[in-house]
């Protein structure tokens, strides 16, 4: 056993490394979240947390489930592909509780020009008007019915 005669300091050093290594492994197991590395170099639970955020826009399917009459009206007009919440705003609250949460009344004088005010950068085939000339300040729904906006003979309903 002559080889180990003066090796006491090596064993002590090895013990220090061992304790250090165990402390590292132990602390790592304690500090790194369980789901870290589940899918990659990130916390797997973060995906479910991000997905759990509540929805504000209910989606047109939810609107159409109840408002079939409006859907029918839209079908005959140019706005058929415009989703309800594009104009009416986020209404998931209304879907959850249709009785007490009512959509706000819209101001067509503000709403329509967002899309239809003439602008040089808009596509040429998109219907645009200079609102000041077109309506002389009257709200658009004086003449146009928003769900089916073409003006038909005898006025709109």
């Amino acid at each position: 056993m002559n080889a180990f005669k003066d090796a006491g300091h090596l064993f002590r050093l090895a013990a220090v490394f061992l304790v250090g290594g165990l402390a590292f492994v132990g602390l790592r197991a304690f500090l790194v979240p369980k789901s870290f590395g589940e899918y990659g170099h990130y916390r797997g639970d973060a995906i479910a947390e991000i997905a759990s955020r509540p929805v504000n826009y209910a989606g047109h399917q939810a609107c159409e489930d109840c408002h079939a009459d409006v859907l029918e009206k839209k079908k005959s007009g140019k706005h058929v592909h415009v989703n309800c919440e594009a104009c009416h705003g986020p209404l998931a609250n209304h879907v959850d509780d249709p009785g007490s949460v009512q959509p706000a009344k819209l101001d067509t004088a503000v709403l329509c020009v967002r899309c239809h005010e003439a602008n040089i950068a808009k596509p040429k085939n998109f219907p645009q008007v200079a609102s000041a000339d077109n309506s002389t300040g009257l709200p658009c729904d004086t003449c146009h019915q928003p769900h089916s906006p073409a003006i038909i003979a005898g006025g709109t309903k």
């Binding site: 929805v55 504000n56 826009y57 706005h79 592909h81 989703n83 594009a86 899309c115």
Partner: peptide, 13 residues
């Protein structure tokens, strides 16, 4: 949840 994004939902065109 099977919905589209808010921007796509509200894009009129």
């Amino acid at each position: 949840k099977g919905l589209t994004t808010a921007c796509c939902e509200s894009c009129p065109t």
